[in-house]
């Protein structure tokens, strides 16, 4: 399986998360998966400006010429995209959210109905499944985890995808990698 991991840890000094992610990635590779790891803090990705040029001026392409282009290409090429992020102020990191905001050129502006709701139409035939790998804050509680889960379940609908799992770094990296296989 082709797996894209977006490392959304903004702080390289958070060593535990980096070590966990390195171990997790290595296990996935040992299992035979093709893993691409994009470290978002080392990429130049401007925040989406909401201009919609990617929908109405240069369909499918963002006006900003930066590293979000690499993410978009790798996103489409993957079977599974894992957003790996420490939880900060109760949600995935800003750089992870920013990277996700810049994925919208991959969908079409036209509206369609999905299960009785309005969503956007596909631009491509297929999209990868989504998973979350998160590190809890000391104050993370069940409410925070439900909020994150529900928001990404919604985001997956708009990406014509599915949210396969939300794992936390409280479980061993081996277990998290095994669970990727199950999904």
């Amino acid at each position: 399986m082709k797996i894209l991991i977006l490392n959304g840890n903004p702080n390289p000094d958070v060593h535990d998360f980096e070590r966990y992610l390195a171990r997790f990635t290595k296990i996935l590779e040992e299992k035979g998966h093709g893993v691409a790891l994009h470290t978002l803090r080392d990429m130049k990705i401007q925040p989406c400006s909401g201009c919609f040029n990617c929908w109405v001026k240069t369909p499918g392409l963002c006006s900003f010429k930066d590293d979000a282009d690499k993410n978009a290409r790798a996103f489409l090429a993957a079977d599974l995209v894992i957003l790996a992020s420490p939880i900060i102020m109760g949600f995935i990191s800003a750089i992870t959210k920013n990277a996700m905001d810049r994925i919208i050129p991959l969908i079409h502006p036209y509206l369609i109905e999905v299960n009785g709701e309005v969503h956007h139409m596909k631009r491509y035939d297929a999209y990868p499944r989504l998973g979350l790998l998160l590190e809890k804050e000391s104050c993370t509680d069940d409410e925070d985890m439900t909020i994150i889960h529900d928001i990404f379940k919604r985001a997956a609908i708009n990406m014509h995808s599915s949210l396969d799992f939300v794992h936390y770094t409280t479980i061993p990296a081996e277990e998290a990698a095994d669970a990727v296989d199950i999904h």
Binding site: P47, A94, N98, M100, D101, F152
Partner: peptide, 23 residues
């Protein structure tokens, strides 16, 4: 803020992170 990919825009999340010392 407007809804971006079912949440707050990344730039708004960045601001929330800057509020962390005020928790």
């Amino acid at each position: 803020f407007p809804l971006y990919v079912d949440g707050m825009p990344g730039s708004v999340k960045q601001f929330f992170e800057h509020l962390a010392p005020l928790v």
